[in-house]
Design a protein around this nucleic acid. Structure first.
Lengths: 118, 118
DNA sequence: TTGAAATACATTGAACCGCAAGGTATATTG
DNA sequence: CAATATACCTTGCGGTTCAATGTATTTCAA
């Protein structure tokens, strides 16, 4: 029941969802992902490198991502892109997220008990 | 990276949020909360007793809930209600949830990079 | 030219939390 | 009288985020 520092307490699975989404739009490398998430969410979400890299490795091992080395400006980067399996995984995750938020919204706004008109 | 059985992977903090919300509408006891969440979300979310009871105890220890015993039909129940502190906590959590989902939605639907017009 | 900051990768330990499984006890119902 | 529903509870496992730390290179300002 401790209050966290950076991000709020609702972050379970969110890094994976966001990373897959970003990578499906365009090829990216780890460090870039960290900043992209910060920027596009106006710092509402800040996912550190200690989260991003393990997720990338895990997704690659699961066959959801593939990687290739590339040296740009003398900098060695590892670019990741989404595989077909990764695309399916994202679609599934995205749908799950939508259902979840819809269900929660129902409770939050909901006076109505689930009971039908009898 | 393992796929879960019952609920999806986005459940961090959600039980606390839902429980506070339900209890602010009306006094309830643990077992009732378990079923209420199942019913009102059409089983999209199923939070077990092993989750609900520890959360109730934690929230009470934090002063967000108060409880009173009550025997109904020979059944001993522990009814929980939200304190003023709990109400503030719910307001804060609810706002955080809203911000979070908005930020995620931006990334999910978002082609636009956060860069302003220069 | 020297040092700080940014870039880019990575690992580690701790903390937390949801979940399944199991445990106790009473009341209801077939 | 046995099975089911009600009502409470705890424990251990596993997974995940997070802060902190580490290495190495490049860029930029003093």
């Amino acid at each position: 029941m401790k209050v966290r520092g950076t991000n709020p307490n609702f972050m379970n699975g969110v890094p994976e969802l966001l990373i897959l989404q970003l990578l499906q739009q365009e090829e990216m490398y780890g460090y870039e992902i960290v900043q992209a998430i910060r920027e596009r969410t106006d710092a509402a979400i800040a996912i550190g490198e200690g989260v991003v890299y393990p997720v990338l490795h895990g997704l690659e091992q699961d066959g959801a991502l593939r990687s290739r080395r590339k040296t740009v400006n003398g900098r060695s980067r590892i670019y990741y892109s989404v595989t077909a399996a990764g695309s399916r995984r994202l679609a599934h995750l995205s749908q799950t997220w939508k259902n979840l938020t819809t269900a929660i919204q129902t409770v939050l706004t909901g006076g109505q008990r689930g009971k039908a008109i009898s």
